[in-house]
Amino acid sequence: MKIVPIDENFHRWSELLQLILSSFAYMNGRINPPSSALSLTPQSLAEKTLNEIGYVVLEDEDLLGCMFLRPEPGCLYLGKLAVAPEAQGRGIGRLLLQVAEAAARERLLSALRLDTRIELTGNHSVFAAWGFAKTAEKSHPGFDRVTYIEMRKVLAV
């Protein structure tokens, strides 16, 4: 298993989209508003890598996981962390987290930040076990209730 950056040689956008959609499928019907993953296309994923740092996890030629990182003031945003359903429970998420931490440190950023939906309490627990703490409750535009929480992990730089 290896984690590699998504670069100009990457062309497996349709497969990457399928990985994200299958990984996020359990959210369908559980969260409101629906996941932004549902609006992704192969082209929008390719465009995402122009402004963000993408990584994929490969085992032989199989895509097993991915994440996208975006530098922000003082932190590195961790988004679209996805692990193929058949590969979950193998430590792939933790491996991606280690890469995200290293990427933040390389950029002299002292924290990782992510958002997770309020309904997905299992995700809250996993991220807390990985060292993230809830820092804010927020709402998507047009909602008068909390729809997601922000979590941060402070890093030793």
Rank of each mutant, 00 (worst) to 15 (best):
L16H: 08
E47V: 10
G29W: 05
S14P: 00
F24I: 11
L38G: 00
R30E: 15
E47N: 13
G54I: 13
Y26A: 13
H11N: 12
I20V: 15
H11K: 08
N51D: 15
R12S: 09
S36G: 11
A25D: 15
N32E: 13
R12H: 09
L16G: 08
A37S: 12
Y55E: 14
N51F: 07
E15S: 12
L50G: 09
S44C: 10
E15R: 11
Q43I: 06
I53R: 07
E52P: 00
L16T: 09
L40A: 09
A37I: 06
L16E: 05
A46D: 09
Y26L: 11
Q18P: 00
N51A: 14
S14N: 07
F24W: 13
L40D: 14
K48A: 08
Q43N: 10
S14F: 01
Y55D: 14
A37M: 07
A46H: 11
E47M: 10
G29S: 05
Q18I: 00
S36P: 00
Q18C: 10
I31V: 13
P33F: 04
T41K: 05
N51G: 12
L19Q: 09
N32I: 00
N32H: 07
H11A: 10
A37P: 00
S14R: 03
L21D: 07
L21H: 09
N28A: 13
T41R: 01
A37N: 05
R12K: 07
L17M: 03
L17I: 03
S39T: 12
G54R: 12
S39W: 02
A46S: 13
H11C: 06
S22M: 02
P33N: 05
L50T: 13
R30A: 15
P42R: 02
L38V: 04
L40C: 07
L21V: 06
M27K: 04
E15P: 00
K48Y: 05
L17F: 08
I31W: 04
N28L: 02
H11S: 10
I53H: 10
I20Q: 14
N51I: 11
S23R: 00
S14G: 01
L19P: 02
H11Q: 13
P42D: 01
I20F: 12
Y26H: 12
Q18M: 09
S22C: 01
S23V: 05
L16C: 09
Y55C: 15
L40E: 15
L45D: 07
R12T: 06
I20R: 10
E47C: 10
T49W: 09
I31E: 04
G54S: 14
N51C: 12
I53W: 04
H11M: 03
L19R: 06
I31G: 04
E47S: 12
L16Y: 06
Q18N: 13
L40S: 09
S36M: 06
P42K: 03
